[in-house]
Design a protein around this nucleic acid. Structure first.
Lengths: 352, 352
DNA sequence: CTGTTAGCGCATTCAT
DNA sequence: ATGAATGCGCTAACAG
């Protein structure tokens, strides 16, 4: 009978070792065990080490949930990204998780697919889990939910996109300047027929990169040519189609600025298909670095948007806010400067 | 005085709304609120809806920590990977998080860098957080810690690598067969001088892929040539060096099997540099698909190890175990079959 | 249908 | 230096 009970329990309810178990085994109170394990030296040296040994022997591990409940620190941080396909997001996720783990936090990862409803669901779940901080790329549709966090004193850091009046810090990319620098580089090489592929006008990067491109053009007194501007979705097929269109122009560009990252794949495919020699026949500049860009022949020059720096900054910033929750200091906006990485895919243009 | 207190509290202690708050506001007991929110219909329709409205109005959100503590379900699942750079790991992470989120679980992401110490630390943290399941790529050095999970009835699913006698399910890749199929494909195309790049003998994939390669060779009566076999680390520089070595042989291979994924980058670089025409002058087959492979010209044929299928299976398997924790059924080993994806990088060989 | 009572595992007063 | 008592927010068994 009793035997039966024991067996039944041991199979179905794998009891986790608790402070109480240790306390009983050590013939002390739960509080003493708690203190001993805290290691603040509030306990007799001898009994402390005895308790430690027993705890070790019993395989004790603190229940983070119970602890969180009383300390009001979950040790959890939420990270919400669109996907993990984009090289920038990968770097971001990896760096942030590593940095936060070093600081003793665990990362709750959420992939939204840039879907506002998904975002809303995840935001609720993260809130329920009482994350102590949140880093995310906003869709912009769930500001009321975000306000839940900020109102509760949970720091939030936004990435890449930002609504005006966001009650939290944001780390943005300097797409205007990045595109400007890239275009200027091509202009200085002597190109004036520069084709550009960018995201749609609805997107931030689409607008800003085009703006930077135009700014450089104007600065060099080069008239803009609508035929040289291709706007489309973030995918390879668009890049293929756009590249073909550009190359088939009566006076095709002498340089291509693939400022829509995903489209670069399609562009490179077309250039290979048509056996266009880079940079002799055509100069190619891409946006956002990709590991294999440097292993292409020729190695592809890029405007690097700096995802690593952004991720590091985001993690740092969040940790700062957690430590010093100055309620009134939120809402700052930081721009992560873009950097031109010159490799071998751009050559001299016809000149002016 | 009282005013002062209130202000002070409202600034420094952003009180989260609790069941008690709602109960007071609705003049009912905490349990009634709990029941109403549970929505099992154990409460008067009218009061239930009233409570729901009040909860909504007060912005109530359940404290997952408190709930977990009593229900003994954290709703958390751990995922431990080496990195997020490898395309297979990205897909794995994304798919698993999505699948588990659908099932109502949140993912705690850990990046170990294949470092046993890191792995140990993460395993402890995950255990402390009382994850309800764990999916990971084992280093193989922390079996005692893993046993903590399995002994406690927490299901574990191993990925890619497996120690004999692991007390949990593993989803492995069929590298032997994958390499065999790939090699056989090249042989059938008429190649007999096939160079191969694989991981070091210490690695699983290194050993198995070489085995598959040799098996195919023997089956076709082709003698193995040590000069055609290059073993090295998982990185691009190795690929570059190895590829150069192979090509500089007096009788270089007519086909290259880049079965060390990361090395593929270096290989492709060399082939471009030397303007070797694929597949006319040389056939190229890679291992593990990469998004841009299909956008190269020619599109690269690969042996796909099936990370998506593996991730899906892992998630499914874990969820099953969580639902039905049949203590005695663990320890199964599943092989995820590899698949040959034929694109344009392999052509006819000289024949036999 | 509803309120009261008991914890979940832990940290933290308050006594001693 | 230690034990007893309290409560974190919630669910669940028990009475009514």
């Amino acid at each position: 009978m009793s035997d039966d009970e024991i067996k039944k329990n041991s199979i179905r309810a794998p009891h986790f070792v608790t402070l109480r178990d240790i306390a009983e085994s050590a013939s002390v109170s739960v509080s003493t065990v708690s203190r001993a394990l805290a290691g603040k030296g509030l306990v007799n040296r001898r009994t402390e080490s005895r308790i430690l040994r027993i705890a070790e022997a019993m395989g004790y591990r603190p229940n983070a949930l119970a602890r969180s409940l009383v300390t009001r620190n979950s040790g959890l941080i939420g990270l919400m990204l669109h996907n993990l396909l984009n090289a920038s997001f990968q770097r971001t996720a990896e760096i942030i998780q590593t940095r936060l783990a070093d600081a003793g936090y665990q990362l709750l990862l959420c992939i939204t697919g840039d879907n506002p409803q998904q975002e809303a669901d995840f935001l609720s779940m993260l809130f329920d889990h009482r994350v102590e901080g949140l880093i995310y790329v906003p869709t912009g549709k769930n500001m009321e939910l975000i306000r839940r966090f900020t109102d509760s004193g949970v720091p939030v850091v936004g990435l890449i996109r930002r609504q005006i009046d966001s009650p939290y810090d944001s780390i943005l990319l300097d797409d205007i300047n990045g595109a400007y620098e890239g275009t200027r580089y091509l202009l200085e090489l002597g190109h004036k027929r520069i084709g550009i592929l960018v995201g749609r006008p609805e997107t931030n990067s689409g607008r800003e990169r085009l703006e930077g491109y135009l700014k450089a053009l104007h600065e060099f007194g080069v008239p803009e040519n609508p035929n040289y501007i291709c706007r489309g979705p973030y995918n390879a097929p668009f890049g293929k189609q756009a590249c073909e269109t550009l190359l088939d122009l009566k006076t095709p560009p002498t340089a291509l600025f693939a400022a829509n990252h995903e489209a670069s794949f399609g562009v490179m495919r077309v250039l290979s298909e048509r056996s266009i020699s880079i940079p002799d026949q055509l100069s190619l500049l891409c946006y956002e670095d990709e590991p294999w860009f440097s292993w292409q022949k020729p190695a592809i020059s890029v405007v690097d948007s700096g995802p690593e720096a952004m991720a590091n900054l985001a993690a740092e910033r969040l940790l700062q806010r957690i430590i010093r929750p100055d309620a009134f200091s939120g809402g700052r906006e930081l721009r992560m400067g873009a950097k031109l990485i010159i490799r071998d895919s751009c050559g001299a243009g016809p000149g002016f």
